[in-house]
Simulated assay, not measured.
Amino acid sequence: MIKKTLLNDMMERLIIKSDSINTWLSKIIETVPRVLAPVKIGSKAEFKEIKDAGSVAYDVITTTSSIKSAAFPNTETLFAYEKQGLETKLYDVAEDNFLDTVIWRARPCDAVGFGPLTKIFNWDYKDKLYNERFSRLVVVSFACDKADECCFCTSVGGGPGNTAGSDIMLTKINDEDTLVEVLTDKGSKLIDLCKDCFTDADDSVDKESVLAKVPVKFTREQIHEKLAKAFESPIWKAQSERCLGCGACAFVCPTCACFDIQEDAHGNHGRRVRCWDSCGFTLFTQHTSGHNPRPTQATRWRQRVMHKFSYMPDRLDIYGCTGCGRCSRACPVDMNIAEHLTNIANNE
């Protein structure tokens, strides 16, 4: 019988034996309509739907792309329509587009990314599609025991064991034992699927000692303070000279939420589609008149950094970066955002 070992109003700490994790995951796969987890594709990994507990890639630091598409798909139909004489009939998105979903082996930088997304999609208008998908997500994160040169979560208020945004967090303590922190009611329901897999965690279990060491390079507050005076700084041109405007950084980012609206029309019927966009694209802010208020890659790069570290904290009281480093890994010309932010923090 598992008793609740509450550290605060929401958390209980349990232990699962490493050889029982796949038993638990198999039960989740049997029970939940959709389970997304990192799956190896060549030498890299991406979040894919899994039907077998043995298909999860545990030997990668992180996936190439984030998991934001689980709540904010790269392309989605907002509604469909059909013209019937003088009338136009509208069709809402089908209910089967919304599946109860478990995200398995997210990283802390994935889980915390849903915070900025939720703020953005509920700022001046509550986005029904995003909120419905997000309400059906259960995020099972794995703390990081390894990091690479692109990781900088500790510089943006996170960390390798940060529980924010997770419903459950697993931390491998040793070869036999894994600490399970149950953080929400959604998480508790997953524990109930396989109660016999868990025992109570002793108070002496310390996860901090096994976490990856990620040095702090700057603070969000430093960047925010410097950006307040940097709108006309030459640093934007210097930093953006290699940028191709390809949008890879935005597409792999856990928090980028820019989108475009397209009409997919076919005679008397069609649909309105939302698809990912990027502030780095040349046409992103071009007006119908042809005028573009951000005509250079320097002004578009400035927008990207200012939006994440100045506009969002000022407007939404949250920062738009989780320090996952995906943008730096994906960049074809090796633009490293952590290096650029360190430069801004140290720029007088």
Rank of each mutant, 00 (worst) to 15 (best):
V60I: 13
C249P: 07
D100N: 13
C324Y: 07
L227H: 10
Q262M: 09
T342C: 01
R242C: 07
A248T: 05
L190V: 10
D177Y: 10
Y130C: 03
F152G: 03
A257L: 01
S55I: 09
I103T: 06
R315T: 14
I173T: 07
H307M: 03
V205N: 06
G323V: 03
N8R: 03
I261L: 13
H269Q: 14
T163K: 15
R220V: 12
A71K: 10
I223A: 12
G161L: 12
S135V: 06
L86H: 11
K126Q: 12
A228T: 14
S240V: 02
G270P: 12
E221A: 14
D59K: 00
D59I: 00
D314E: 15
I120G: 00
L244Y: 09
D202T: 13
P38Y: 06
P116R: 09
S69H: 15
N22I: 08
K128Q: 13
E232S: 12
G161N: 11
G320N: 10
G325T: 02
A298I: 09
Y130E: 00
V156F: 01
A164I: 13
S188Q: 14
D200V: 15
L193W: 07
D9L: 09
G115W: 05
T288P: 05
C327N: 02
S65H: 15
H287K: 12
S20K: 15
P215G: 02
N174H: 07
F309L: 15
G290M: 06
V182H: 03
R220E: 12
V305Y: 07
W276S: 10
A70D: 06
T171W: 10
A230F: 10
L86P: 03
M306F: 15
L78T: 04
D314G: 02
R272A: 04
A147G: 09
